[in-house]
Design a protein around this nucleic acid. Structure first.
Lengths: 341, 341
DNA sequence: TTGAAAGCGCTAACAA
DNA sequence: TTGTTAGCGCTTTCAA
């Protein structure tokens, strides 16, 4: 909450004192009417009339300050709401929050650890009742004090680092092992691997899964076929182009997330290349793509649901030791081509 | 803010009084340190040490209550965050809000007018500084009092009804006129029209545009080719199926939004139908579809940007009369087939 | 059932 | 530079 000027045009909003004066009752009577506590028929009528006339709305900020009740607000920190993966998480979290009578504040870290830290601090200063976090930074020890002071925190998709807390994760290694394995089963021997930032544990697991599949098939791992630190789809496209221009190019690609898959697919399509493609993350129209795409899928809604419900259990007082849940991933086979003869 | 129990595990958080006692200074000195006001070197050190030791975080709720400054929060009401159109709006709004040092609370009405009303009331009780609203319900006069009391409200994509307020809209009629016009230019004479709920002005405008194109081409309007009240993509698929099964089926379809377009496309693809298809709303992978899709496009980010910036101008005190901005739409020609011979 | 007084955690206004 | 007092709008406590 940064220093901001008061708005000049804002007339003072009516308070309970104004309503009380208007209705000729005491402040406390107004409070009782507003909160549905027993009040005599006649006074209720006068108070409601005054409320309607003045346009009074209870100030929940003040109410919360005094009552020390919960804030009815939880914070969700994601990377970027425009990504469908995170939009789905936000959608489910908001739905479950609503079922608990609470609102969701969503903020995007844009993968910037500094921003992540600032936003989480802002959340705590706003006294949210709990935090859902898809971590961006490499260290979350700065949250330790908050957790000790009773702030429930549940991590999604990526584990916390430097902090013990609940986490709900995906079986990244198993998924990419299955994805690359499917390419190898089809007869491919040279597989280009496109990945995001290797500082993220999730990405390292996906790389490890890809390597495990290659090793299991007795294929020597060729580092020159791995491109990481890829963020935008266009970077994936350029990486595909560079790999295809090698003297001994890959006949297949494995992409570490949906945005990279789209970028790679566009480049393959542009070149009319028939290299095979498998991606981590399903997306809505994958089956309508120029080639039906085989992808590693999982249940994003379930991920968000389990995390949100654990958070609300924590908020309700559950103080069992932090635990980590790993959800399964699976291969969605939608077509896969063997290497060109 | 519904009645919720206090969390049993929550230890009392340290307050400025605790910090002051710990550091052996007055409450106000702590406040000064926390707010970067001038305080002597030595005291600053003692206070910062106490803050670190106790894990103190300023309570922005209390701060805001007393200072009568802005809340540094704006509310965004959309239909459903999982829809990319709204996710883009949320993304841009959050970005612009962040640039103004404020956070965004997003809530989804799910097209339910009752829910919309409850959520907007919740926003006002939380004393947000302003409201961005994609309206769902048919009447917004219940916000009139709020607006009079100084709450800035900007409507996006759909105009307010029963209320005078800023609005940023799209040229729906022009867009669908161009979309249907393109089909007619291609030689189509029977065009199926798929639309959402006709209670929404936006939908009525899109229908009017489609009719205008037909009239301009001298084609009599056949009501039996119009299907409205369609929400889920599957409903669009079923509508396409029903229309294609007519004795004299349409040779082309016009869809009123992206979800209907996807549903229609899937049904056409399933049937291997070569009926032409034009949709309102662009989407990311439209050019990779089985057939490159011609769509009516517009700049969603620009829509959200203009609305958000107008909101922050209002919050800053701009009290010029409410105005409506209509943004252009355009045809993105990506291929269009004539009627089968 | 109704009301008066105190106080949530902080900042504003004023004093030292 | 530092501290004291009052008070934001509401709920809690206690008394009538």
């Amino acid at each position: 909450m940064t220093q901001t000027p008061t708005r000049p045009t804002a007339r003072r909003r009516p308070t309970m004192v104004d309503v009380a004066r208007h209705a000729g009752v005491s402040l406390k009577t107004v409070s009782r009417v507003v909160n549905d506590e027993p009040v005599g028929q006649e006074l209720v009528g006068r108070v409601l009339a005054a409320i309607a006339e003045l346009g009074f709305r209870r100030n929940d900020i003040a109410r919360n300050l005094r009552s020390r009740q919960l804030n009815a607000t939880v914070g969700l920190l994601i990377e970027e709401i425009a990504n469908p993966f995170y939009a789905t998480i936000a959608s489910v979290a908001a739905e479950i929050a609503a079922a608990h009578g609470t609102m969701l504040i969503t903020a995007s870290s844009e993968e910037d650890p500094e921003r992540e830290r600032a936003l989480l601090q802002d959340f705590t200063q706003r006294r949210v009742d709990g935090l859902l976090v898809v971590p961006a930074g490499p260290d979350h020890s700065f949250l330790r004090r908050e957790v000790e002071l009773g702030m429930p925190v549940v991590f999604l998709d990526r584990p916390p680092q430097g902090l013990l807390a609940d986490a709900v994760l995906l079986d990244n290694q198993g998924g990419s092992r299955a994805g690359v394995g499917a390419l190898l089963d089809e007869g491919h021997r040279r597989v280009g691997v496109l990945l995001g930032a290797p500082t993220v544990p999730t990405i390292r697991e996906r790389l490890a899964g890809a390597r495990a599949a290659l090793t299991a098939a007795g294929i020597e791992h060729d580092e020159s076929l791995v491109r990481d630190r890829l963020i935008a789809p266009e970077e994936a496209g350029r990486a595909v182009a560079a790999l295809l221009d090698l003297p001994d190019p890959p006949t297949a690609f494995f992409c570490g997330n949906n945005r990279l898959t789209v970028g790679a697919l566009q480049e393959l399509h542009r070149r009319c290349s028939d290299a095979a493609l498998v991606g981590f993350d399903d997306f809505e129209l994958a089956h309508l793509m120029p080639r039906p795409l085989t992808v590693v899928g999982y249940d994003t809604r379930e991920l968000a649901r389990i995390a949100s419900e654990r958070l609300f259990r924590r908020i309700a007082g559950d103080d069992s030791p932090p635990s980590t849940t790993v959800l399964p991933t699976w291969l969605l086979r939608r077509g896969l081509t063997p290497p060109a003869a």
